[in-house]
């Protein structure tokens, strides 16, 4: 008897709420439509195409894991992966450290800090195309970068983006310039959450600003550092715009990246299946990097 009444009560209470549920789903419907097609659906399609051979003209042919096997043996892909890894290992630490220093300086209540904040942030609002075009010009043999180096006593006139040894470093420099301030803002927000008494105690104990920074600020900011390192690594592994605009992966594949290869395979050579497999591999790599970094960096601060 009791079980029966409970069974009856539940549907009736559901019935009372169904109007609310319909309303909620009506509010959600427009967004869900786009989410389900262009992200969730597209992701499953990418997975499906990665098991096929597909050139857009004839129907996709299922070929199992062949695309993945091809990727593992593909020297070009491995070379691209190496480039991107080098790029990440250099850029992420420099840009994180720079962003941290910038945030710590802005946190010092210096005069003109509002001006500094906007001025430092401006590189982040220019489009990747504008940044790349400007730096392509600055990096010319007769450009301002060589000129500045000459002024400080390094007499060189290199074609930065045109030479194998300097092309990737040149892209590193332009991207550090263009993104450090975004990460600075994350640190700045985190710094505002650090309890002020900690600093007061430190300065009463006679700790100078440098020691306070390394022994108090940095440890307390570990969660923010984790976030910045993860987002930075994800961004670095996706390096594309600057390569596409400035170097097309050259010279001699020196700036070839995974995403550029994905574009070339998919949209120049119409190997949609192989391009999808490269995309899935990129996704997995990024996912693993996030997990690994979480393991080592994401430690809650203890106040």
């Amino acid at each position: 008897m009791q079980g029966g009444s409970a069974a009856i009560r539940r549907p009736s209470s559901r019935f009372r709420h169904w109007r609310d549920w319909v309303t909620a789903y009506l509010f959600l419907a427009p967004y869900l439509f786009f989410l389900l097609i262009f992200i969730v659906g597209a992701l499953f399609l990418a997975l499906y195409y990665s098991f096929t051979k597909y050139d857009l003209l004839s129907d996709p042919v299922f070929i199992g894991l062949q695309n993945y096997r091809k990727a593992i043996d593909d020297d070009v892909f491995l070379h691209a992966l190496r480039n991107v890894a080098t790029y990440t290992v250099v850029v992420v630490p420099i840009q994180t450290a720079l962003a941290l220093v910038m945030a710590a300086i802005l946190d010092q209540k210096l005069p003109f800090r509002r001006f500094f904040r906007v001025a430092w942030y401006l590189p982040c609002v220019a489009s990747s195309v504008v940044v790349t075009l400007i730096f392509m010009w600055l990096f010319l043999p007769d450009g301002f970068i060589n000129y500045a180096l000459n002024l400080i006593g390094i007499p060189i006139r290199i074609n930065w983006l045109g030479e194998e040894a300097t092309a990737l470093p040149a892209i590193m420099i332009m991207n550090i310039w263009a993104t450090a301030a975004t990460q600075m803002l994350i640190f700045l927000a985190a710094l505002q959450d650090v309890p002020q008494p900690i600093y007061e105690a430190a300065s009463i104990d006679g700790a100078g600003p440098v020691r306070t920074f390394f022994q108090i600020t940095v440890p307390l900011l570990r969660p923010a550092i984790f976030l910045v390192v993860v987002l930075g690594s994800i961004g670095c592994f996706q390096l594309y715009d600057q390569v596409k605009i400035a170097t097309n992966g050259g010279p001699n594949d020196a700036t070839l990246t995974v995403t550029y290869l994905l574009w070339r395979e998919g949209f120049r050579d119409l190997n949609m299946g192989y391009a999808s497999a490269l995309g899935v591999i990129l996704f997995v790599i990024i996912f693993v990097i996030t997990l690994v970094q979480r393991r080592y960096l994401d430690v809650r601060p203890d106040y």
């Binding site: 097609i37 574009w263 949209f267 995309g279």
Partner: peptide, 26 residues
């Protein structure tokens, strides 16, 4: 609600380039 919200949070992790091919085909 929770499931959909988790899906939305999860898709923050998907690199945009993975979706180029399928979006184009769609």
């Amino acid at each position: 609600a929770t499931v959909i919200f988790l899906v939305i949070l999860g898709s923050l992790m998907v690199p945009g380039q993975v979706l180029w091919v399928p979006k184009f085909i769609i």
